[in-house]
Nucleic acid binder design. Structure first.
Lengths: 143, 143
DNA sequence: CGCTTTTCTTGAACAAGTCAAATGATGTGA
DNA sequence: TCACATCATTTGACTTGTTCAAGAAAAGCG
């Protein structure tokens, strides 16, 4: 678990000013991987008090641009954020309860897959989303 | 290119009533693969006159549930629809102009990929989105 | 042809996210 | 240490894509 000093260093290294909303957002995304914006707003407000939703949106955008967090958004879901960046991992999403878990990429670097026919496109990255049922829903529903 | 009779048969086989908005939507999605809802509404209005946007949303939902069309929605894009269903193909999206092209799946049936560690999830399908630059943007931008 | 059910229209409502202007805090250089 | 320029945050309205609800219209069936 990174310390506040780690967060501060991460911000400074990205030429971002160190403010309490940013520290709180960074911390919240670390603690709640794959959380949606509303949850993050809630967590941030719980830790440092009143913050406008706009500030959180803005901070998340700034952190995303800086590469400190990654934005993911499976179909039918609102935007979610995670701090695992740099490694090329993927996600498995539960069709029943919307739970999201990380799945490591076998290759490790992007693009981890090569298209059979790239139609002339220059492919930079392959994003993989596995759809299925999480252990809980699988047991309750798939019986 | 399917004929109106084909569309009619497809609707009947799915126990859907045959109406002009449905025929027009099905035809529009066939003619404009990966079109967003607004484009589809425009195409439908061009072919059969005034239709409420609500009807198109409703028809698209009905067709999606029936499995006649597939809804795709890459990050940062609005909902798009295509009629290639049944085969397990993927998409390549241009980061610059949002163009979408089909990419055939090497395996052909879902799930075409196996996760390295499924975290206990029951995986039914792997959805792959390739991100890159289309030939046009690649030439104009990548010089 | 008439009835039942599904579908379309109309109009409003909703949620997520964005824009813009003014206020406030941060870091920097003297 | 202080002042200043710059960047961040607040506030509040707004846009966009999509959905809800109720009544009118059409499709299919006997």
């Amino acid at each position: 678990m990174p310390t506040p000093l780690d967060f501060e260093r991460m911000l400074r290294e990205s030429s971002l000013r160190v403010t309490s909303p940013r520290m709180a957002v960074l911390s919240a995304v670390h603690e709640h991987p794959h959380a949606d914006t509303e949850s993050i707003i809630g967590a941030v407000r719980g830790s440092i008090g009143a913050v406008s939703h706009q500030a959180v949106y803005d901070v998340l955008k700034a952190l995303t641009n800086a590469g400190l967090v990654r934005r993911i958004q499976p179909q039918g879901s609102v935007a979610r954020y995670e701090t695992r960046v740099g490694d090329n991992h993927h996600h498995v999403v539960c069709r029943s309860c919307e739970a999201i878990a990380d799945v490591d990429c076998a290759i490790g670097h992007a693009p981890c897959l090569t298209a059979s026919n790239d139609r002339g496109f220059t492919i930079e990255e392959a994003e993989v989303v596995y759809w299925g049922l999480c252990p809980d829903c699988s047991g309750a529903d798939g019986s």
